[in-house]
Nucleic acid binder design. Sequence first.
DNA 1: TATAAGCGCAACTTTACAGTTGCACAAATT
DNA 2: AATTTGTGCAACTGTAAAGTTGCGCTTATA
Lengths: 112, 112
Amino acid sequence: MPKDLRRDVFQAIADPTRRAILSLIALQAMTPNALAEHFDTSRQAVSKHIKILTECQLVTQKLAGREIYYHFNAKQMKEVDQWLEQFRKLWEDRFNQLDQVLFNLKPDDYEN
Amino acid sequence: MPKDLRRDVFQAIADPTRRAILSLIALQAMTPNALAEHFDTSRQAVSKHIKILTECQLVTQKLAGREIYYHFNAKQMKEVDQWLEQFRKLWEDRFNQLDQVLFNLKPDDYEN
DNA sequence: TATAAGCGCAACTTTACAGTTGCACAAATT
DNA sequence: AATTTGTGCAACTGTAAAGTTGCGCTTATA
């Protein structure tokens, strides 16, 4: 139960549509209409996703006449990267652990 | 609107309690009761989180008598790491872009 | 100036989900 | 054998969230 509004990066990237939006605008800034064409949802639905992405500053806006171009802000993604840091050693060490298991099973192989 | 059950890693780590659970059991495997003592929620609530984490294989179980030890499986976290890959260049290039902006503002500084 | 295009916002619906309480069951403990 | 302990599961509640439709505002275009 979210006691307060969870507008953090982790919640933002939880939705697959939002992840796709980020991948798209990371390549090129786009308007909501252009974005909506890539999905099977309405423009308003895309705008809602954009709003959530904007609230955690993963996306910034740039007005051009009556069009609004949404830009990707990679900086905020660092938070996820930093959180992953504590686990990197673990999935890297998996090979070492496997190595150790193999050594315990038949250490002779390691003498060849 | 989730049309199907979204039991992927991204949805799993969206919840702050689940992220904390993962950080805890990454250091040491724990039972649900032991985990619940770290949070302001019931054991059953923790079990629900564990269930979600188990469904996307971020957590594995190991029975020891009537106790169940939950282990962290770092391998599944690679999916997040790989998704981040497409953005790493962008936040690294930010310094280059900033450099370009500064150059456009006052290129004289670059001649000193 | 009238009209079309591009947006955001508000209201509403449906579903997922985080939490609770209660209960049943198996394994230790007495 | 009775009791305590550790756990999962089911039922229920409240809230967030994803989607829709309709509307109004602003900016181009005819």
